[in-house]
Amino acid sequence: MADRARKVKFKPRRFVGAVAVILLVTFGADTVWRSLSNDEHHNLVIDGDFAEYPTMPETPQQENAVTLANDDSTSTKTVGVENVGQHQLILSEAKVAEGKLAVYAPDRPVKSGYAGDMVNLLSVKNEYYSLYSESIQLESDAAEAFNQLMEDYNNDTGLSDFVVYGTNDTYTGEDSCCPESFTESALGTSVDLALKAYGEVIEYDGLDDESWVVENCWKYGFIVRYPEGKNDTTGHSYCPWHLRYVGKVHSVIMHEKDMCLEDYIRFLADFTLDKPYQYKYDDVDFTIFSVKSTGESTVTYVPLSSSYSVSGNNKDGFIINTPKS
């Protein structure tokens, strides 16, 4: 006889009780989990070796630039960030005796064997002057400037009567048109002049139409090395026939300030890397300063953004020139 299906009767009280039990169990489990999760991590013990990364140092704040000024120039010195935008220049002690602005004397002569980039004048000269000897040489920058000087002299006067009597090895013997030699001539940047007249070579006295060279050579980078009225400073009487190439910006400044080379070197000694002499010529800004020699190696700085030239003064330091157009 088949079993009779049992009829199940729904009892609300039992259902509510079961739901309550489930909720209590769920709540209790959640409470235990939250308690475990809130424990501090330092209570956990982990074995093993771990790399330690060094603490990065703080970057110091940069201070503002300070502008320095004096009667002759204005310069900017960066404070707090040393030598930003500059290139370190190391100058050897031997270089003190070399350069276009070096002052030479019998007791401080040009170093044996030292001369600049020399060229044979016969191979580069123009038609506006003559040579006393075909073997005469001159430093390349000086030769280029001298050619322009002689061309302009011819353009202004119609004359081409100058003779280069000598440069670094001028004849000073009997009947010489340039009867005196100078220690500095060995540098190769000096020109000793004479004149063609009446079919012969005669001494140049700086007078008449030919005075144009004495009056205008500074425009081309030359100076009359022993100018009129500077005997007490140079130790030598006026010598119009002996020119020396120092570079255009220097010759222009010396002309404006009525300075001989000795005056100019003393003038520049007051200007330093931090307070340089500023000069504008032909739309180019020149920064010029002196650096005292500190011995075997002297350190200074020049701008990264411009070229520079260095000359020793043949005494105690260097002169740095940095043009910027």
Rank of each mutant, 00 (worst) to 15 (best):
V191A: 07
Q148K: 04
S130F: 11
E174K: 14
Y171V: 09
T189I: 07
L195I: 12
L122H: 02
D107K: 12
S185G: 08
V124H: 02
N168M: 11
E184I: 08
S190W: 06
P109W: 10
N154S: 13
D175G: 04
E180G: 00
A143K: 03
T167E: 10
A143D: 04
Q137V: 10
S190D: 15
F162N: 05
R108M: 05
A115I: 00
S123F: 07
S190L: 09
S135I: 09
N120C: 03
G199Q: 09
Q137E: 15
E184A: 11
S133H: 13
Q148C: 00
S130W: 07
V164I: 15
L195G: 08
G173F: 10
S140M: 05
Q148L: 01
E184P: 00
G166V: 08
A143M: 07
E174Q: 14
A105K: 14
G116I: 05
L159S: 09
A105Y: 09
S181E: 08
A186P: 00
D152F: 05
S190G: 15
L122D: 07
M150P: 00
V103I: 15
D107R: 10
R108A: 14
V119F: 07
L121T: 01
T170P: 03
L121H: 03
Y129H: 05
S135K: 14
E174Y: 15
K125R: 15
G116H: 07
E134F: 04
V124S: 02
E134Q: 11
L159Y: 08
A143G: 09
S190H: 07
L131E: 06
E134S: 13
A197Y: 09
G116L: 05
L195A: 11
D107N: 15
T183G: 02
F182P: 01
